[in-house]
Amino acid sequence: MSEKMIENNKVSVIGEIISGFTFSHEVFGEGFYMVDVAVNRLSEQADVIPLMISERLIDVEGDYTGLTVESIGQFRSYNRHEGTKNRLVLSVFVREIHFIEEFTDYTKTNQIFLDGYICKAPIYRKTPLGREIADLLLAVNRPYGKSDYIPCIAWGRNARYASGFSVGTRVKVWGRVQSREYTKKLSETECEKRVAYEVSVSKLECAE
C-alpha cells in the first residue's frame, strides 16, 4: 500500500477494552476480529469505538477486558446488506496496537485526520438553541480503486464554512471519532436503538 494512501486517513485512539473479540471475516487466510474500546472524552463521557484487528497483531483468544490500549490505523467503512437496504458500517482498522500501563494526557486519546472529497451536498442546520451544525460525507480514497465513506459533523463557524462546499471539493479534516446513540423507526410500532459513528470536526480546510 502506498504511503500516500495511508497518509490521507490516520486515526489514533487510546481507551479501555470493554469486550471480547468477535470474528468478522477472513482474507487470504488472515482472520479479522472486532473488539470495542471505551475512549474517554474531556467531559468524562466515553465514546465506544469498534476496532477491527488482525489475529496476527494480537492473540484474539486472550481476555484483555479492562486493559488500556493505543490503536493506530485508519477509519474505514463498508456496506452491510440488510434485506433490501445497505447500511454503512464504520470501524477503526488497526495497523498497530500497544498496551499502556499509565496514561495521563487525555487531550490525545482520540485523534483523526482525513483528506478526501465531498461526495454529498452538505446539510446545514441550526439546533433549537441556535447552534450551527453541518453534516458532511467524505470519500477518502484507498488503493485499488476503493474508497471509505466517512460521515463528519462540523459546528459553529466550521459548519457555516462547510455549508458552502460543493460535491467533489477536496477537504482536509482534523477531529475525533465519536459514537452517538439514536433510535431507528422500523415500523409504526417498532423502534430499535442503534449507534452511529462519525468524525466530530475541530478543524477543516479546503485543500484545492
Results as ranks from 00 to 15, higher is better:
Asn8Pro: 01
Lys126Ile: 12
Lys172Val: 07
Arg95Ser: 04
Phe32Leu: 07
Ala46Thr: 11
Asn158Ala: 13
Tyr144Ser: 12
Val39Gln: 03
Ser202Arg: 09
Gly62Lys: 05
Asn9Ser: 08
Gly62Met: 01
Gly130Pro: 00
Val177Cys: 14
Glu82Pro: 04
Leu67Glu: 12
Ser71Ile: 04
Glu7Met: 06
Thr104Phe: 08
Thr169Phe: 14
Lys126Ser: 14
Glu190His: 14
Val69Lys: 06
Pro122Met: 15
Asp115Val: 03
Gly156Trp: 14
Val13Leu: 01
Ala154Thr: 06
Ala196Asp: 02
Glu3Trp: 05
Leu129Lys: 15
Pro143Ala: 09
Trp155Phe: 11
Tyr78Cys: 02
Lys193Cys: 02
Cys152Gly: 04
Trp174Leu: 05
Lys85Thr: 14
Asn110Ser: 00
Gln45Ile: 02
Ile100Gly: 00
Val201Cys: 13
Ser200Lys: 15
Thr127Trp: 06
Lys184Ile: 02
Glu102Lys: 15
Val13Gly: 00
Asp135Phe: 10
Ser77His: 04
Leu67Ala: 08
Gly116Glu: 05
Trp174Ile: 01
Leu204Asn: 01
Glu70Met: 11
Glu82Cys: 08
Glu26Asn: 13
Gly164Gln: 12
Leu137Arg: 14
Trp174Pro: 00
Thr109Gly: 08
Ser19Gln: 05
Gly31Met: 07
Ser12Glu: 07
Glu101Ile: 06
Leu57Ala: 01
Glu102Ile: 03
Met34Gln: 10
Glu30Arg: 12
Ile14His: 11
Ala139Ile: 12
Leu204Met: 10
Glu198Arg: 08
Lys172Met: 12
Pro122Cys: 13
Asp105Trp: 01
Ala159Asn: 00
Lys185Thr: 12
Glu101Arg: 15
Val27Asp: 02
Ile14Thr: 11
Ile153Tyr: 14
Gly29Cys: 02
Val69Glu: 00
Asn110Thr: 00
Asn8Ala: 04
Tyr161Met: 14
Ile123Glu: 11
Thr127Arg: 07
Gly175Gln: 12
Gly73Asn: 04
Glu205Asp: 09
Ile118Glu: 11
Ile100His: 04
Ser179Cys: 06
Glu190Tyr: 13
Ala46Phe: 09
Gly116Leu: 06
Asn9Lys: 13
